Computed example of a mutant assay.
Amino acid sequence: KSPNYPTRESPLNSTDNEILRDTLEKRSEPSESSDEEEFDGNVQADFAFFDPKSNDFHGVKTLLQAYLDNKQWDLTGFVDLILGQTTVGTVVKIEGDEDDGVFSIVTALNLGRYKDHKCIMEIKEFLLKACQEKDVVDGLRLTLGEQAQNVGLLVSQRVVNLPPQLLPPLYDALFDEVSWATEDEPTEELRNSFCFKFYIIFSKIYKHKNADQKMKLSNDSDEAIIYTKPEDEIFHRLSQWSFSFPLHTQQPTHELRNYRFMGLVMAVEAEKISTFRQELKSLINES
C-alpha cells in the first residue's frame, strides 16, 4: 500500500485495531479414554483481516470454486487478479493459524481496467448469456461494456459458518479502501479506476418455485427468496436492476425441495453504499 494506507501487516479491526474474536464450532472425535475431560465443542478463534497475498492463492481459489456455477473458466487468472490488487481487498484468516486457511475474501475489481483479462471476459460472457430478462439485458450490456470503466465487480465469498458479526467491519474495510484508493493511488489512472458509479454483485439464492405468487401473498409462511448471505437481501432491495437464473452446482435439500438454486445478479449504485453499510449494521445487531 502507499504510505497513506493503514498498514495491515498485523491484524486489524476496522474500529479499534483489536483482533476480532469469535467462537468457532468444532466437532471433536469421540474420546477413547473416559479419563479425558469432555470437550464442549467450542474453540476460541481470533479472526483477523489481512491484505491479500500470493500465499492466499489456494484458500481464495477454494472459496471461489463455484463462482461461475459449473463453468470451466480461467479461475486461476481471476484469483491472480484479486491477489494482485493489494490496495483494495481483504482476506479473513485466523490469527496465528499455520495452515494459512482463508475464511473470506472481499474485493472490488474495475471491469474496465481488467477488461482484457480472459477471466473478466469470461465473467461478462457468462452473465450476458445467463440474462434472459429483456428489460434488464440492455442495462447489463451497457454496464459490462460502455460503462465498464465506472463499474466494480464486488466479489464476496466466505465459508458458510463465518460469524455474521464480521460482516459490517469487513464491508466497511472494503468501501473505506475504495474511498482511500481514489485519493492515494500513485497515478491518476489508478485513482480514477476506483471511482465506481456502480457495483455488480453476483450471488446465489434459493427461489421458491411459486415465488411470483408468494410475493403477492404476504400471509404465506414460505419465503419467496432465501438469501444464502444476509447482506444480499439489502443489496437486492437497493439495486437499480437485478435478474436471476437457474444454477447447476447445488441441488436443494429435502427441506428446500420447493425451491430452486439460482444465481442472482444485482447492479447497485455507489451512492447507495452508505445506506447499505448502515442497514447491514442494523441487521447484524438485531440478529
Rank of each mutant, 00 (worst) to 15 (best):
I205S: 08
V151M: 03
Q157Y: 01
G139Y: 04
V136E: 07
Q149T: 07
G152K: 07
W180D: 14
L167G: 01
Q147I: 01
E146P: 01
Y199W: 11
I205N: 03
N192F: 02
N192Y: 03
Y206Q: 07
K197E: 15
L142Y: 10
E188L: 15
K209G: 14
P168T: 02
R191N: 09
V136W: 05
V137R: 14
G145C: 08
V155G: 06
P163N: 08
T143H: 00
L190S: 13
F198H: 15
T187N: 09
V137M: 05
Q157D: 12
T182K: 11
D176Y: 04
R191A: 12
A148W: 02
Y171T: 09
E177Y: 00
E185C: 11
Y199F: 15
V136H: 05
E177D: 15
E146G: 06
E146M: 02
W180F: 11
E177N: 10
F198G: 01
F194A: 07
V159P: 00
L144V: 03
H208E: 01
L170C: 07
V155P: 03
P168G: 05
A148I: 02
S179Y: 10
G145P: 11
A181C: 08
F196G: 02
Q165I: 12
V159A: 08
L166Y: 09
K207A: 14
L190C: 04
E188N: 14
I205D: 10
G152I: 07
K207T: 09
A173W: 10
L190G: 01
Q157P: 00
A173I: 01
Y199H: 15
F202P: 00
